[in-house]
Amino acid sequence: MIKTKDHLQMKSIPVLLLSALLLSGCATHQSPTGRGQTLLFSSQEISLMGDSSFEQIKKQEKVSKNNKLVTYVDCVANRVTAVLPNKGLKWDVVVFESDQVNAFALPGGHIGVYTGLLKIAENEDQLATVIGHEVAHVLANHSNEQVSRAQMTGIGMQLADAALGAGGVSNKDLYMAALGLGTQVGFILPYGREQESEADIMGVELMARAGFDPRQSMQLWLNMAKVGGDQGPELLSTHPSHSHRIDDLSQMQAQVMPLYLASKDKVRNSCRISK
């Protein structure tokens, strides 16, 4: 059957109606900085997605057996997660052997760090910058926010595909991409600039409370800016410009340096790589 323009417009009406119903029925929350969020999933549901995705990644990627690197990354991650509100959640930290300059955190308490990042993050404070930033995404419900957007987009896409006779994208792939795992599924649903800036603000506070020098956060992103030419490493593929990020972090220093000074003397475990 030949599909006329009017016919296609009529077929698209259910997509619009379903989108409106989803938006009207979803829960509205505020992020830690007061930004409005639309969240379709409970914390239990989003944690299960994170658990499942992390298990899949561990099967796909090579897990590092370098005990010195693993101990080092564990130390930094454990200090950052120790200052989080949910003290009862034990975070699973895995180092992956890969040249990717990347790291991620997932709901359910999972952190992945690629060995390529350790060539750019020159010290424990710079590594804490990245881990704090990634954990902040989870803490601020950015994962739930992104998966909710993927769900709404995915259902709309599937209905539109049925109406137009096109191929679809699986919900599983949408969830993986929304959780920040674009390299595993071939595409990504990037965090927005507001989410990235929010994670920067929260992340630098987390690292300072954990006794890591927040001044090193600016040096870390300067290092990142030198890597990979115009495109930069994977970690920066969807992030704000280097100069914008560094300016924001510079403005945060007056607020977070007192937190660092108050906490650094209480730190008992240095995270330097043993020789």
Results as ranks from 00 to 15, higher is better:
136 A>Q: 03
137 H>Y: 00
137 H>L: 03
140 A>T: 02
141 N>D: 14
141 N>F: 09
141 N>M: 12
142 H>A: 05
143 S>C: 02
143 S>R: 04
143 S>V: 05
143 S>P: 02
144 N>K: 11
144 N>A: 15
144 N>G: 15
144 N>Q: 15
144 N>M: 13
145 E>T: 08
145 E>N: 06
145 E>R: 09
146 Q>W: 03
146 Q>D: 01
147 V>Y: 00
148 S>D: 06
149 R>F: 09
149 R>H: 07
150 A>F: 06
151 Q>K: 10
151 Q>M: 13
152 M>C: 08
153 T>S: 15
154 G>H: 05
155 I>N: 04
155 I>A: 10
156 G>W: 02
157 M>D: 12
157 M>T: 13
157 M>E: 14
157 M>W: 09
158 Q>W: 11
159 L>A: 00
160 A>Y: 10
160 A>N: 05
160 A>C: 04
161 D>T: 02
161 D>G: 12
162 A>E: 00
162 A>Q: 11
164 L>W: 12
164 L>I: 03
164 L>M: 14
165 G>A: 01
165 G>N: 08
166 A>G: 15
166 A>Y: 14
167 G>M: 07
167 G>R: 07
168 G>M: 09
169 V>E: 12
169 V>A: 14
170 S>Q: 05
171 N>S: 14
171 N>L: 10
173 D>T: 06
174 L>H: 12
175 Y>N: 13
175 Y>H: 12
175 Y>A: 11
177 A>T: 11
177 A>C: 08
177 A>G: 15
180 G>N: 01
180 G>A: 08
180 G>Q: 03
181 L>W: 02
181 L>H: 09
181 L>F: 11
182 G>N: 01
182 G>L: 02
182 G>V: 09
184 Q>P: 03
185 V>P: 03
185 V>A: 01
185 V>C: 08
185 V>K: 04
185 V>H: 03
186 G>S: 10
186 G>F: 01
186 G>E: 07
186 G>D: 07
186 G>W: 08
186 G>P: 08
186 G>L: 05
187 F>T: 13
187 F>D: 11
187 F>S: 10
188 I>N: 15
189 L>M: 15
189 L>Q: 13
189 L>W: 04
190 P>I: 05
190 P>W: 05
190 P>C: 01
191 Y>F: 14
191 Y>D: 09
192 G>V: 12
192 G>Y: 10
192 G>E: 09
193 R>W: 00
193 R>I: 05
193 R>K: 13
194 E>A: 13
194 E>L: 07
196 E>F: 00
198 E>V: 04
198 E>I: 01
199 A>M: 06
199 A>H: 10
199 A>C: 10
200 D>P: 06
201 I>N: 01
201 I>A: 06
201 I>G: 00
204 V>R: 04
205 E>Q: 15
205 E>L: 03
205 E>R: 14
206 L>M: 13
207 M>I: 08
208 A>Q: 04
208 A>E: 04
209 R>M: 12
209 R>D: 08
210 A>M: 06
211 G>Y: 04
212 F>S: 07
212 F>M: 08
212 F>N: 02
213 D>T: 07
213 D>N: 15
214 P>V: 11
214 P>W: 05
215 R>C: 06
215 R>A: 11
216 Q>T: 03
217 S>D: 11
217 S>T: 14
218 M>L: 14
218 M>H: 05
219 Q>S: 14
219 Q>N: 06
